[in-house]
Design a protein around this nucleic acid. Structure first.
Length: 632
DNA sequence: TCCAACCTAAACACGA
DNA sequence: CTCGTGTTTAGGTTGG
């Protein structure tokens, strides 16, 4: 499962340029991004606040204050802890909300959400023991956190010698409500070293106490500075109070943004279920290739807003608000690849605004196979961006909007076939499905119909089955999932040594002819049957047609035979009109496309058969046709 | 740059 | 002859 990441403006541009997302995906992406940004803000401030608290508490404890002062410290600490608790609860509530909305996928043990409360849920006795350990004879290696961007001990700070403590901390996961546990004073003071290396109040030789920025050469001098300048006094206390107010403001902001997010989502979902008007035609300018590319000058002008408007996703006002207010402060750069190091949030803000997307360049609308998102429910599950309600919305959208669906013809044909009750469709029914499901396919019929026919022929996953009253098409879903084209890339012109390749190139139709002729109840050649029997392979019979399971079985059979099969259909019973010129051969090698290595193992099987009625194409030059060496 | 995947167009064959 | 169906090839774009 993919973990949502804040994407960079460049990535957003890329997504938009490629048109890889459906409108619903874009909606969800927007929501997700906003949610993630809020989460990161909260995380950052939570972390800072927590570290400051820890530092102060340590100072105070080491300073050896008078009892009266200790009481004061305790009071302040309690206030801080309550604040922390509130933040944690807020954070957890936020995360729960995100999870519930499907915007976040949290896997246990995955260090993607370094927001776990540090010591929450520990009982005082545990903490005292931990404190003893930490303040006792420990080494710096004990609890040094290796992760420099987070204090998430539960996931990143488990060193070999600190296992007991680490497990102790991990146990705190059980209590996530934060209600039952009462933080003790010692909770925050787990270790000096824990934050010595990556202290939030110290970085790049500068004290980061709010408003300080004093230069400290090293960490000891920083600590000295901290003890001298930021000891527990009125000023520090006041600064802490200010910081608390900052946190409170953030909470307020978070709460407001959460409400706003909820309202946005509610609004968008409600809107998306409303009848969609067709996109305004003037938003689209079809350029050089009418069916392939759609450029929109207005899209270029309006950038992001224009694109989504063009997609009829949201109203201009809503979108502008969404984009410009998604993150008033910043949209941090964060790598989307899990392997990439986490970029500090303190980098310069990169705000995605409508202005920053103006320079996206030409926007070309075209599918991208990588993001080829199926439109049916059974396919959609694996797509992270989408939730189930989006599926129907997608279909509704394309039914009414004359927008080219971002799906390949093969995907659509497969979809059409699988949606049919019998899992089989005639060509005309496939046409009708296209026009029914997609407004885009209600014009330029010659083009897309031709494309459909080409795809049916070219993709080995589509199996043509002939019946008495015509033929229909089925889909071998396993073959579809394995790969598409029979001809991978442009077929090569045969060279003298490429007889075999040429046979390969002809194999698809031959394979299909074998199946279709058999389905047509013409007697399968005895030789082929014998060969199948020898290989203990099931026959691919008419009964299997239209049955996906049997189709898969049959496909497996074909692949087990692996390539060299005989063209059994030279007696004219094959009513397939577009016959391969190979049918004129007495015996031919039929080899499947060189498949994946795992599919290409084993000896090649050669099936021979009698050729009853060779039909020779006089217009065809067979000079270069391969000669089967097994031919008599 | 190469190549796979995909799209489009067109030529061609065949049968109704 | 036309049309629908099906196959094959050529050439283009895109993205890894």
């Amino acid at each position: 499962m993919m973990t949502p990441q804040v994407i960079t403006p460049q990535q957003m541009q890329q997504i938009l340029q490629q048109q890889v997302l459906t409108p619903q995906q874009l909606q969800v992406l927007l929501q997700q991004q906003q949610a993630l940004m809020l989460q990161q803000q909260l995380q950052e401030f939570y972390k800072k606040q927590q570290e400051q608290l820890q530092l102060q508490l340590l100072q105070q404890q080491h300073a050896g204050k008078q009892p009266k002062e200790q009481q004061q410290v305790a009071t302040q600490q309690l206030a801080f802890q309550q604040q922390l608790l509130q933040m944690q609860q807020l954070q957890q509530q936020h995360l729960l909300t995100l999870q519930r909305q499907g915007l976040l996928s949290i896997q246990p043990g995955q260090p993607t959400l370094p927001l776990q409360p540090l010591v929450q849920g520990m009982i005082p006795a545990e903490l005292q023991q931990l404190w003893k350990e930490v303040t006792g004879s420990h080494t710096a290696d004990d609890v040094v956190c290796n992760n420099h961007s987070t204090l998430d001990l539960s996931t990143t700070c488990v060193s070999s010698t600190a296992q007991p403590k680490a497990s102790l901390l991990l146990n705190s996961h059980a209590s996530t409500n934060g209600q039952a546990s009462v933080l003790t004073l010692k909770r925050e003071s787990s270790s000096h070293e824990e934050y010595a290396q990556n202290h939030s109040l110290y970085g790049h030789g500068v004290c980061k106490w709010p408003g300080c920025e004093a230069i400290c050469e090293d960490f000891p001098s920083f600590l000295k500075h901290l003890n001298n300048e930021h000891a527990l006094d009125d000023r520090s206390t006041a600064q802490c109070r200010v910081q608390m107010q900052v946190v409170q403001q953030l909470e307020l902001q978070l709460s407001k943004d959460k409400e706003r997010l909820q309202a946005m989502m509610t609004h968008l979902h409600v809107k998306s279920t409303e009848p969609k008007a067709s996109p305004q035609p003037q938003l689209y300018t079809t350029c050089s290739r009418e069916n392939g590319w759609i450029y929109s000058s207005q899209q270029l002008e309006e950038g992001f807003t224009g694109i989504l408007k063009g997609l009829n996703l949201v109203s201009s006002a809503t979108l502008s608000k969404t984009v410009s207010e998604a993150s008033p402060q910043s949209l941090p750069h964060t790598p989307t690849t899990p392997t990439a190091p986490l970029t500090p949030i303190t980098q310069g803000p990169s705000v995605i605004t409508t202005t920053s997307i103006h320079n996206v360049g030409p926007i070309r609308r075209r599918y991208s196979d990588k993001y080829n998102v199926p439109i049916s429910s059974d396919w959609m599950i694996s797509v992270d961006f989408l939730s189930l309600p989006d599926i129907a919305q997608n279909q509704e959208f394309y039914k009414n909007a004359e927008v080219r669906p971002p799906f390949t013809y093969a995907s659509l044909i497969r979809q059409a076939i699988l949606e049919s009750p019998e899992k089989q469709l005639t060509l005309n029914e496939i046409y009708n499905w296209f026009t029914r499901q997609f407004a885009y396919f209600r014009r330029n019929a010659a083009t897309w119909k031709g494309a459909i026919r080409t795809n049916l022929s070219l993709h080995k996953c589509f199996i043509r089955v002939e019946e008495e009253y015509g033929s229909f098409w089925t889909v071998d879903d396993e073959a579809f999932k394995r790969g598409h084209h029979i001809h991978r890339g442009r077929p090569r012109k045969p060279c003298p040594d490429e007889h075999f390749d040429q046979l390969v190139a002809h194999s698809p139709s031959l394979i299909k002819n074998i199946q279709t002729s058999h389905a047509y109840c013409s007697p399968l050649s005895a030789a082929l049957q014998a060969s199948m029997a020898e290989n203990s392979l099931p026959l691919y019979t008419t009964a299997s047609m239209g049955n996906p399971a049997l189709n898969s079985l049959a496909n497996a059979m074909r692949e087990d035979l692996n390539g060299v099969m005989e063209h059994t259909n030279s007696n004219g019973s094959d009513s397939s009109p577009g016959r391969s010129p190979m049918q004129g051969m007495h015996q031919v090698h039929v080899k499947e496309e060189p498949l994946d290595p795992d599919e290409n193992e084993g000896p090649l099987s050669l099936v021979t058969t009698a050729n009853h009625s060779p039909e020779f194409d006089p217009d065809r030059d067979y000079e270069d046709e391969p000669v089967n060496e097994d031919m008599e």
